[in-house]
């Protein structure tokens, strides 16, 4: 088992993450937020139906696409881009310093504590239907997985390959992929917790729940 408290203290030293907001496509950029130090919000509402703070508009072919803050935080840096400039796809625009929430801290620690099953190749991944059905009906942490089980379908270049799980037996504790998006080779797909460690993990989470204070 890893030393959770040490890890927590490590995170506490810099309890935030910097998020770079980039242009999703080409277009002329018009900033709505112009100064550093401005506080922004991520999407809110029960269904995240209210978008976050408007950061900028990206105008392409007569359509002004709003760019909203992905998370709550503070604008800390603007890249060297002028208002009204044409930007290429993926151009970094600004940085938001986002203070970690309890859930995010838990995720970081889980990533260290769980056995991570990593993408053997770059591509899109789906759970095999057996697991998928179980997760959809009973939720995560209901699926036991053993070394050698059929776990995922890898889809790339219009072909699908079945991927077998390799690692310790246990339950699927969290997933890290989205079947709409390609996962880089070596990126984590899901985290497995050996059954005898489930309680340990719970303790860790409880510790964070009580020992972490979210910052504004």
């Amino acid at each position: 088992m890893i030393d959770i408290m040490a890890l927590l203290n490590e995170i506490k030293k810099a309890p935030y993450r910097e998020i770079t907001v980039s242009a999703p496509h080409t277009g002329r950029i018009e900033f709505a937020v112009k100064d550093t130090g401005i506080k922004v919000d991520g999407a809110t509402g029960t269904w995240s139906e209210r978008p976050g703070t408007l950061l900028a508009r990206l105008i392409r072919e007569g359509n002004a696409k709003p760019l909203h803050a992905p998370e709550k935080g503070e604008v800390v840096h603007f890249f060297d881009i002028e208002d009204g400039q044409f930007v290429q796809a993926g151009t970094p625009l600004l940085n938001i310093r986002h203070f970690l929430t309890k859930q995010e801290v838990i995720d970081i620690i889980l990533k260290k504590a769980l056995h991570l099953f990593k993408a053997p190749e770059k591509g899109r991944y789906y759970f095999v239907s057996e697991i998928d059905i179980k997760i959809k009906s009973q939720g995560l942490r209901s699926v036991n997985i053993r070394d050698g089980d059929e776990a995922l379908i890898l889809s790339r270049m219009k072909r699908e390959t079945i991927i077998h799980y390799e690692g310790p037996d246990g339950i699927i504790y969290t997933t890290y992929f989205n079947s709409n998006e390609s996962v880089e080779m070596g990126g984590p797909l899901f985290g497995v917790c050996p059954e005898d460690q489930v309680n340990n993990i719970k303790t860790v989470i409880d510790k964070i729940q009580s020992g972490w204070e979210e910052q504004e």
Partner: peptide
């Protein structure tokens, strides 16, 4: 040379053409 989000998106092509 322009970086675009996708070769399949005509809007990207026209935006680059104009710029």
């Amino acid at each position: 040379l322009y970086r675009i989000s996708s070769y399949q998106d005509p809007n990207e092509i026209f935006a680059v053409a104009d710029d």
